[in-house]
């Protein structure tokens, strides 16, 4: 049981904190919030959607990337390792721009593509945002999964093999769950890093939370207040991610 007794220095700190928040509420300008509420929520939604979809898709790619490096045939292992090195060794911003300005500018030259049903999607910035963030997450998690797969004791896999288990069953029932459980604490941090990488998509005109607050600042000429609110929102999201992971980890400590 955590104690709720507060020592004096904590009470002082708490009071100082409350005073600062009070001063901020009174002395700073927050009157712009109602006007931009819908925009902020829309931006928050895109940020969340990007975070969730890219980390899920990225992780799904990371599993084969890690497996190929840990146990794959040599050419495949090299290919996966090369991919992870490339992704981890170059700025995400660069990857994003290469996809958006590079790939995106090549598409119009493909015959017939402009008239196809795909075209509206191909000109959407969020598609490139999704691609770049997914590929990046896959690169980082692929490296982490490599280590996790490699660290599952060989004997546990041998036990499965010696009982006649199919290799894919062994992967699904033993190897993967053991590896994933090992990376859960790391994954928590990685998701928060991924969250904080999403503002980069504002540079290719995707309107995420960061882009919305940027626009607010330009339109209202208010310098600090939007930044503070944005910081608070990112902080809350990061906190929620950590809480979710703690819940998962304490539920199954094995």
């Amino acid at each position: 049981m955590p104690s709720f007794h507060l020592p004096p220095h904590r009470i002082v700190l708490l009071l100082i904190g409350l005073v600062i928040i009070g001063l901020m509420a009174i002395n700073m300008r927050w009157d712009w919030i109602p006007a931009y509420r819908a925009d902020i929520l829309a931006g928050l939604r895109l940020t969340l959607v990007l975070l969730v979809t890219t980390s899920v898709a990225g992780f799904l790619l990371a599993v084969p990337l890690g497996l190929a490096q840990a146990a794959g045939p040599r050419p495949l292992a090299w290919l996966a390792r090369g991919y992870c090195t490339l992704i981890r060794g170059t700025p995400l911003l660069l990857q994003l721009w290469l996809l958006y300005y590079g790939l995106g500018s090549l598409f119009p030259y493909l015959p017939g593509l402009r008239d196809s049903w795909l075209w509206p999607y191909l000109s959407e910035p969020w598609l490139y945002a999704f691609l770049a963030l997914t590929l990046s997450f896959a690169g980082y998690e692929g490296e982490i999964m490599r280590g996790a797969f490699a660290r599952v004791p060989k004997g546990e896999l041998e036990a499965a093999r010696s009982l006649g288990m199919h290799p894919l069953t062994t992967l699904r029932r033993i190897w993967l769950p053991r590896a994933v459980r090992r990376v859960l604490p790391t994954l928590n941090g990685e998701l928060i890093i991924q969250l904080k990488a999403t503002p980069l998509v504002a540079t290719i005109a995707a309107v995420d939370m960061y882009a919305v607050f940027g626009r607010i600042r330009q339109e209202t000429y208010i310098v600090y207040e939007p930044l503070l609110l944005m910081a608070l929102l990112y902080l809350v999201l990061a906190g929620l991610i950590t809480l979710a992971f703690h819940a998962v980890e304490s539920r199954r400590s094995h």
């Binding site: 004791p153 004997g155 546990e156 041998e158 036990a159 499965a160 093999r161 010696s162 009982l163 006649g164 288990m165 199919h166 033993i174 769950p177 053991r178 459980r181 094995h254």
Partner: peptide
Amino acid sequence: LRRLRARLAMVFQNFNLWPHM
């Protein structure tokens, strides 16, 4: 081969039970 292995069950020095189950 897998069917054969299942009929020749093995017990290891390090037990090798699966810790997540």
